[in-house]
Design a protein around this nucleic acid. Structure first.
Lengths: 225, 225
DNA sequence: ACCTGAACACCGTTCAAGT
DNA sequence: ACCTGAACACCGTTCAAGT
């Protein structure tokens, strides 16, 4: 029992990759995207920036690791009734996770091909294949779903970021957007000015799922599923 | 003819909002997303940072203005044969513009509700309405298309950014991604490791249009168009 | 092996001073 | 009205020195 920990005795709460990631997530959640800085992280961990660099490569890698720690549990597959249901589960799990941690949205967007994105690719790819989409069409189908999800994620993140920066709650934010749009010249922007009112009452989560359903429906039609 | 210019005689090539935006675009195109800095911009314009701040609010606004200058001409509506064709025109115009100016992708993503995004909303909203999508479903339909486009845009930007940072051309970049994916454990990542080979030959532009067609097809099915 | 913290290079923004 | 450029606050990263 003297050497349970790998080759070292460390003061309790000492640094580790995991503790750094945990502290980063807390900082990002409480302070927003701009909250993760090395000074702030060093303070929170009661250490110097150099110590952090011993455990991680750089800030980008830290962000991706933090993102991965949120994404992975959000998309763990439940037993779903059908491939469509599995895809909806993954999508909803991600949407809710990103809603709770908006910074995940912008990180996800800036890190295609990295491990969080690959997890999602896989979680969507398997049910898309099970759906019966022809082999050579699977990539474009999965890519469309992934891009759509990431697009929503990024915009939600940007909206949350804006609202935070101006310390607006959701309703105030929506009211502001709605007012701006309704003031657009209705000759030049008939659609945007006309849709402004609906901004106030729309449900992000429902709208998100409509997009998923549109793509799933398109897959069924185009490939006779 | 003495007072053609508004209330001032300026040395040729003097500062103006337009000249600043033009220089910014040149910098972003030639140096990538990180290329737009006030030191670099000041040097290019042979002035000091303070002078630039006389004409623009801050860096964010400058990025959005530069983005807008690319987006606006990219989506000017041609006479299209059908609403579907109009939507495809807008989507392709944007895709090509973002391909030529990858930084537009990440800027677009970070500025929802701003003028570049509203232009796109309008350019897609009008044909979606003309398509016959019921009034109360138009927002979710347009939002889905917009999010998909923005999602693709952001990922393309991130990929271009990565390739530039590692000075890889497109083929080298794809090869690297393909190799990474093919080395994934095929027990845990059957889809991703299986699709790796296709990475090398896929056509971004075609895949992008498949996504648009999936959504359009979904609209036709769900709303009996 | 792991941590400390000063130092470096760089950046966005401000502002008193000029014309 | 418009420009100059020094100064400020802040940040990511490095590294010689410690334990």
């Amino acid at each position: 029992m003297a050497e349970k920990e790998p080759a070292s005795r460390r003061r309790p709460g000492s640094l580790s990759r995991e503790s750094i990631i945990r502290a980063s997530i807390e900082l990002l959640d409480s302070e927003g995207e701009g909250g993760l800085t090395f000074p702030a992280l060093s303070r929170k961990l009661a250490t110097g920036p150099g110590a952090i660099y011993w455990h991680i490569d750089n800030k980008g890698a830290l962000l991706i690791a933090a993102c991965d720690a949120i994404v992975a549990p959000a998309i763990t597959p439940r037993r779903a009734a059908s491939p469509e249901a599995a895809i909806r589960d993954v999508a909803l799990g991600l949407f809710d996770a990103i809603n709770a941690h908006p910074w995940v949205g912008s990180t996800l967007m800036r890190a295609p091909g990295q491990s969080p994105a690959i997890r999602i690719l896989e979680a969507i790819g398997q049910p898309v294949a099970a759906l019966g989409v022809p082999d050579e069409k699977q990539w474009s189908a999965v890519s469309a779903l992934l891009s759509y999800i990431v697009g929503i994620a990024g915009q939600n993140a940007a909206n949350a970021q804006y609202a935070r920066a101006h310390s607006l709650n959701r309703l105030d934010f929506l009211t502001e957007v709605s007012n701006e749009w309704s003031e657009l010249d209705s000759q030049i922007y008939p659609f945007s000015s006309g849709i402004a009112a609906r901004m106030l009452t729309h449900d992000d989560r429902e709208d998100f799922m409509v997009g998923i359903d549109l793509i799933l429906s398109g897959l069924a039609t185009l490939y006779n599923l």
